[in-house]
Each structure stands twice: as C-alpha cells, then as structure tokens.
Design a protein around this nucleic acid. Structure first.
Lengths: 148, 148
DNA sequence: ATAAAACCTCAAGCAAGGTTGAGGTAAAGT
DNA sequence: ACTTTACCTCAACCTTGCTTGAGGTTTTAT
C-alpha cells in the first residue's frame, strides 16, 4: 500500500492548530488512531487530519465527542474512509444542523416577546418550555467556541 | 409595597422545572436573590421566575452564566426590573443570536463540501478555520440542551 | 558526540454547570 | 402531638473537554 503513516504528533498538531495533548486525548477516547515507530512515537496516516477536521466541525455543530465516536464507529474499519464515507456523515449532521438553525430562529423570533411578556409561569412560554420541540428529538448541544 | 416575597424554593423549582439545588447554585453565583423568613428559609419575589426564564433562554443561546450575571448587573438595583428593562436585555442578545444563526448557516452551507473535499490542510477550509469570523467577535458558546 | 527539541506515560488539575449527601431545623398534615 | 415533608448549610462529587507537569526516552541538529 501507499498508505505511509509518517506524520508525527507535532506535525499533525501544528497543521490542525491543536495541541499535542489534544491528539493524545482524542486517541484515548478512540476518536483517532496511531501507529508507533521503532522508538514508540506516534505516526499518523494523512486521514487523521480529516478526522480532526470533522471532529472540529461536529463540535461546532454541538455534537459531543461521544456522539462523534459513535458515528466514527460506522466508518469502514479495514480501509481508509473515502469521500463517500465522509459525505454520508456530513449528510446526517447537516439535517441536525438544519434543525438547530430552525430552533435558533424560533428562539430569536420569540425572544423579545417572551422576555418582555407576562408569562411568568413559563408554561406558555415558547422560550422556556420543557415541551419544546427540540426537547424530544435527541438532538445534542450546540457549541460555538469563542476561540473559533 | 405590594412586593410580597412569598415563593418558597420548592415552589419556584417546581414551577420552573429545575432543581432546588440549581436555585441555590444560581444564588451563590449572584444570578438571583432571595429574602429569608423567620425560620431562615428562602422566600422569592415573583420576578425570580422571569430571571430564571431569562437565564434559561440565554443559556440556550449559548450565553454563559458569567455573561448573564454581567448583563443582570445592569438591571436596576432599587426597583424590580420592568418590561423595558428586560426588553433591553433581549435586544442585545437578539443581535448575538442573529450572528450565531448566520454562523450556523455558513457552517451548514460548507459542511458537505468541506468534509468531502480535499482540503486536508484545513488552511483553506471554511469550517475548520481559526480565522473564522465568529472567532474574533467575542461571542460565547451556543448550547442547546438535549433535555430542553 | 553532544545538546536541544520532540516525544513518551501517567497523574493531577481546571472551568463550567450543576448534583448529591450528611447532619440538622422548620413547617405542614392528620 | 407527632410524623412527614420541605428546607438549611457545607463539602464533596460528577461530566465534558482538555491542559499541565514530572520524570524519562528518542530524534534531530550541529
């Protein structure tokens, strides 16, 4: 195979703008894999970079590492995932993302009305309503970091 | 004044769908206040419910408790906040929310392209790009809980 | 050949946002 | 009056997502 695993932790970290410790952490969590060289140092195949990219994108959508791991588990084990594999993932997440966008829009549209309104019981409040649509659809958290 | 502070922790917690411990926690953080009855039990004015409603709404928009506290600090100290006071808050947050929605839309629009694309370096990737617009505008995290 | 830079493991620590439990008091129901 | 429920404080603990540091090895540069 042409699949050389020749990227060092440092190289990957630098390239992805994350810390070496984060790579260790992700590996521990089963999100990425590495091979070892003779001196026990990690060596990565290039696809690790795409994995990290996907992890970061998913996090921005509010997907937890655990959920990401579960989704990654569906990727082919034997071969390096190809474009189609990744496209399937992104498609699933795109739907989630759309729901979240809609949710945020609803939140925006009812924000002033709600905060300023008299619905002190919150039973009828479109914002603070446990029955809210998103509440029941198994959607995770949305997180947009302040540091990108 | 007509401002009776006669709601117990339990009543407020039940009404807001949160735990008593959360009320204690918020009080400790300075987000809400309480008076005490003869037996040292907390008694709340009705406006605490609106505060909690606002806290929850803000959290859903991704505002941290710390930021919420800072914003609450601008509310009148002497009198119970009125509709206009709350409306001012919601207006500020609405702008943030709009930015976040735009960000999510951009994320959505570039998701498939990016994950499936060949930009392994991420330097050009609209998703995984530290220079991303939101990175620099001091906007916090967006969190939508799975439990509403 | 040696010194510096990069890497290794493992344990501990941090921040946010709460939750849980122990030990004790107050208020409410019957 | 007595029991149960609600409340009090304070300290410890939990989860997520990492970061930091100590003590030691490997690579790389000169």
């Amino acid at each position: 195979m042409l699949e050389e695993a020749n990227l060092s932790v440092g190289a990957v970290a630098k390239r992805c703008g994350i810390k070496v410790s984060t790579l260790h952490f992700y590996e521990e969590k089963g999100l990425i894999k590495s091979l070892r060289n003779q001196g026990n140092q990690r060596r990565y195949k290039r696809d690790v970079i795409r994995r990290i990219s996907v992890i970061k994108a998913a996090q921005k959508m509010g997907v937890s590492l655990q959920e990401i791991e579960q989704v990654f588990a569906k990727l082919p084990n034997k071969r390096t995932p190809d474009k189609d594999d990744w496209a399937r993932l992104s498609k699933a997440w795109q739907a989630q993302l759309n729901e979240r966008i809609k949710y945020m829009e609803r939140l925006r549209d009812s924000l002033t009305g709600c905060i300023g309104c008299g619905c002190l019981s919150m039973k009828n409040c479109p914002i603070y309503n446990p029955e809210d649509v998103l509440a029941n659809d198994g959607v995770g958290a949305v997180i947009l970091d302040r540091k990108a």
